[in-house]
Design a protein around this nucleic acid. Structure first.
Lengths: 222, 222
DNA sequence: TATTATTGACTGACGAGTAAGTTACTCAAT
DNA sequence: ATTGAGTAACTTACTCGTCAGTCAATAATA
């Protein structure tokens, strides 16, 4: 008994390099579960495997931790989505690809949590909100808008305001992503697989901006 | 000096019939501003023009007040939107009309607040969440789905899964409504009027489900 | 040994909920 | 019409638990 009596394994380790990341991840989990006001720093600390005092070594207070989290997390993902864009294909193919990649991003639990937290706390952190808007949805809309513009020029798409189209495409993808991430709680998503939903999205969107009803073609993937 | 010294005007009045509504309206304002956890009952009381104790005469506790508010508020609006549906017109016209009416509903500040609160508290009130989903978005999707079904039968719309189409239509309308309600804080909505956005929405949606790109399309080869 | 990361018990403020006291109103008796 | 006792509506001052933030002590590491 009592391996605790005389193990020379330390009860805790010094990890100043890893603490911020650990704490931010724990913060995402706990803030995501309870919201900014109701989340307890003790819970975040325990989830991160540290004590409450440690948090204050790396973040001045609860709000700052929250803000830092909102800033840090999306920056991990965005670059990877944008890297996926290929210049080679037709606008139609390029659009389809971008929708697929965005679909993967927008369904991640962390995205859903982030969006939810931002939305609910937007009153108190306007600068944070604007930054998020700029870095996530506007970026996405602009990229989509550019693809649409190319497609119009090439005659693949009908004459539509590219920015408006980008906004529409983003909105429908985005909200379905949030729903899909929480599918278990949303009745009208329960019976659909992610791929089915994506197919419906792509079909709907391509018809909305397409020059012609499309040769009935080719939404199959997997 | 001191008109308070001997006015026979009562310092407060008994209004048991009006209190619940007053308190619920105040709750929407204060919860909407600060969220469930951070909102103070004292603030709600002051906004409602009563004292904190009065709230407890009508609601057992903070959570119950919150839930009652979520239940009560949307029921005021929904019926009025559904009453607007006319059976006479073509599916296309009927759809256009329904989108217009929903657009008005979905832009109201109270809807935006409600949606935001529901989304952020969904973890803790699953039954409330399901009820909201059932009463607001699902209802809307079903109505839209029915219109689409009619339109397919009449040849106005292409052959598309009506429920999926209803979901798409709702989603894009809904999220743009939320954005429009907070337009001042959202860069990509700032330069657009509500009517412009609605026109873009209708245009996008009708093309997405339309059999042909509208009247103009009859000249296009098949 | 010196240094620095980490702990955890502590404090002070804040706010939900309570209950005893106060005020507005009601209505039966005059 | 007026009174005034009874009651329902409302207020206010209080309690008590909770939790953000602090700091002196302690443990790991160089």
């Amino acid at each position: 008994m009592s391996e605790s009596a005389h193990t020379n394994a330390p009860r805790w380790r010094r990890l100043p390099g890893e603490r911020p990341r650990q704490i931010l991840d724990a913060a995402l989990e706990v803030f995501g579960e309870r919201g900014l006001a109701a989340a307890r720093l003790e819970d975040i600390a325990r989830t991160a495997g540290v004590s409450k005092g440690t948090i204050y070594l790396y973040f001045p207070n609860k709000e700052a931790l929250f803000c830092e989290m909102i800033r840090e997390i999306p920056s991990r993902h965005i670059a990877s989505v944008e890297a996926m864009i290929t210049e080679s294909a037709t606008a139609r193919e390029q659009l389809r690809e971008y929708l697929h990649h965005s679909w993967d991003y927008v369904r991640t639990p962390s995205f859903e949590i982030l969006y939810r937290l931002i939305l609910s706390e937007l009153h108190h952190f306007p600068d944070l909100y604007e930054q998020f808007i700029e870095e996530v949805p506007m970026r996405s809309m602009r990229i989509l808008g550019d693809i649409v513009r190319r497609g119009i020029a090439s005659g693949e798409f009908r004459d539509i305001d590219p920015l408006a189209a980008g906004r529409m495409l983003h909105s429908v993808l985005f909200i379905h992503g949030v729903w899909a991430a929480k599918r278990a709680r949303i009745p009208f998503m329960r019976d659909l697989s992610d791929n089915q939903v994506l197919d419906q999205l792509v079909d709907f969107c391509l018809h909305a901006i397409g020059q012609l009803p499309a040769p009935l073609a080719s939404t199959v993937h997997t």
